[in-house]
Design a protein around this nucleic acid. Structure first.
Lengths: 224, 224, 224, 224
DNA sequence: CATGAATGAGAGTTCATTCAT
DNA sequence: GATGAATGAACTCTCATTCAT
């Protein structure tokens, strides 16, 4: 006897299709939001503008996102996912051999730090978005749990570096210091670069990053 | 024949007094704006709020500032002046003797970098303002010339460090690199600190800055 | 020749079943609407909220009701039915004997008036609904015929009192007057009570109603 | 020495004129609001509609009223003032002689009750407004103090009746009862009349009120 | 110089209703 | 029959800016 409706039990092809469609439209709106954001900046991102770009009326957006802050959150989440993808790919295929080669590890450290840097260098709007999360502009609407989740994804993007530092024999405390310092340095350089103020000093961003990583390499434990 | 109005040609005592009065009121409004800004943050700064704090009505502000962006610009200018004052004081009284003592110079370098850092650490609203100029938040109202002037004042605040590096025997190119790197690093740490994200890494901002300056000291030319 | 569809001509068992089902669902929605209304008040009753409570989506409601006003109308109808049930029960079992006992009749009068009053006292949301029909809040959606039908049911709820007054020997004209006056009085007290303004006078609603009915009893024809 | 600005100390003719102008405009907006309200009912009263009727843009209203609820409050206040004026006039010139004539006092009681009733009978929109205060529609935005003030003014309008009842020798408790009952009765009749439901009973509102007051007169203490 | 009324655009959000699927 | 996307109009309220007085 089948008293329960099939529709509620089975993930029918139809449901799947509908779900996929809805997801696609959600993404479409997100893209529109991103486009508006990239074109006019954060201040200009209004529901009406997003809707217009997406080919909707303002009210329609609310079928997909409960609020404007919801859109921001989705945008941020998406951005951090892409950051992590990018960083992951940079160290993909690296040997996780028992016999660790210091030189290789240093290269991995360098690669993953560079991947992090390059992601934001090449996607300046993600940097803007990151600042929205990261602040200056406080994410008032971001719930505590979401905020934590986003923080975690940001830290995740630094994880390969953490692994490398560990392999290289840094102490726990040293790892924390170097990791934070590297993160801060990259952020600082990105900010300088993004705002064009780096020209003020006549230096290139890539050059600065490499300089920093060179110095970091020199600080590696010698007893290996 | 005196077709031209006297008022426009002569800097009469009366004109002077009026000018002084106007300047004072301008400053008064600026102080009000700063107060509102410090109390509630950038988003809450509206002409009405500034006016209220200053004891005026919104319309009155326009006698002294052409637009809201104008006020921001003045606020930035003021902020950068105070930054420079702060940095100047930190190295004040330092010997500009011919006979340079390396140790003293290193100390000066450190002091002036710390002064820069501490100014923003202790005046987070100035940091916010700085980001307004500095960040993706486009300074639409900032004319090119003003923008350059502000840039210059920012660089000025790094000047004592530049002097010290020169004294210590760095090459022109090295100076540029280290100066920019230091600037970027400080900015990055400030950002991390200001947004509270530094907790994510369990590190203190002061600790990071000192760590960086320690490393910098180690890189100083050895042949002195 | 049977050009007309069977479905429209024949009341087939199938049609009956379908009709019953539809009625049940209609009632289900009505219950949901009532629940929302009782929980949050008239202002909060939106189609979405009703639908949610009923386990539907907003659009589905329109299969059963043509508009929101339609739902209100049904709610009112239902409310008046319950009012009449309540009043009927209060006088149920009363002797409809030829030999009328004045005391019993007075008691019946009192009982039915109290039943009317108590129904709304104990079901304040029905009072709200009643005001929606009854008050300045224009029942735009109420068609003339429906409005008349509702009026009739309201009068019906006063009928037992009318009967009693007749039994007690009031003239037609007196009956009309006393009936209307009692109705008005009850409504006034209910309104005062419901809005809490009765506290303004430091009196209880029950006390007032009883006082009124006491006075009414004193006015009864003495020559019986 | 007059250091203080005259403008701030003196109520100059100019200030007076401006104040008067502002008051007039405030009243103008209030009238517009009332007009919209009378034309289309409470639900249709939107800031835009009020503004349109007043010849303003929506935002302009906010120079005179802080919120929509503010307008309601002003409307209600005004309405209650007019009610009190009306009631006051009805008993104006009445002897406040020591030697109280019972007949005269009864007449005063009747007059003031009628004045109350007639005010709302003749100004049905004030009745609607009163219900807004009085409820059904809850005055969510009305601050507690304002709510109390409005309540007080409502009670004030019943005060002449209270005085009369006292003069006639009713006890404190009886006065409370009769006053509340009269109030409730009037409200009930007004409601019936206003909504046209009184036709349902084939009675006139005036007739009902007079009937009630007749009965009240019969209840007056006999020992006078 | 300062006021304060006024504008006009725009913000986010909600809602009853419609309709293709 | 039911869904859920979509509309379009409506809502209150805020803001920078202007301008007659």
């Amino acid at each position: 006897m089948y008293n329960l409706s099939m529709e509620q039990l089975v993930i029918s092809p139809r449901n799947l299709r509908q779900q996929a469609l809805a997801d696609a439209k959600r993404q479409h709106i997100l893209n529109a939001a991103k486009a508006v954001f990239m074109e006019f900046g954060l201040d200009a991102v209004s529901m009406r503008e997003i809707a217009k770009k997406a080919g909707y009326t303002a009210g329609a957006i609310y079928s997909y996102f409960a609020s404007k802050e919801d859109i921001y959150a989705a945008l941020l989440t998406d951005s951090l996912e892409r950051l992590n993808d990018c960083v992951s790919q940079s160290t993909q295929g690296s040997s996780i051999d028992q016999k660790v080669d210091a030189k290789k590890t240093i290269l991995e450290l360098r690669k993953s730090a560079l991947a992090f840097y390059q992601f934001y260098r090449d996607n300046p709007r993600d940097l803007d978005l990151g600042f929205y999360l990261f602040q200056g502009l406080k994410p008032r609407g971001l719930s505590g749990t979401l905020d934590q989740a986003l923080n975690k994804r940001l830290r995740d993007a630094m994880h390969p570096q953490e692994i490398a530092l560990k392999k290289l024999g840094f102490s726990k405390k040293e790892i924390d210091t170097e990791l934070t310092a590297t993160f801060a340095h990259i952020v600082g350089v990105l900010l300088l670069n993004h705002t064009g103020r780096i020209r003020m000093f006549g230096k290139g961003a890539d050059e600065l990053i490499n300089h920093y990583l060179d110095q970091l390499a020199l600080r590696l434990p010698k007893n290996k």
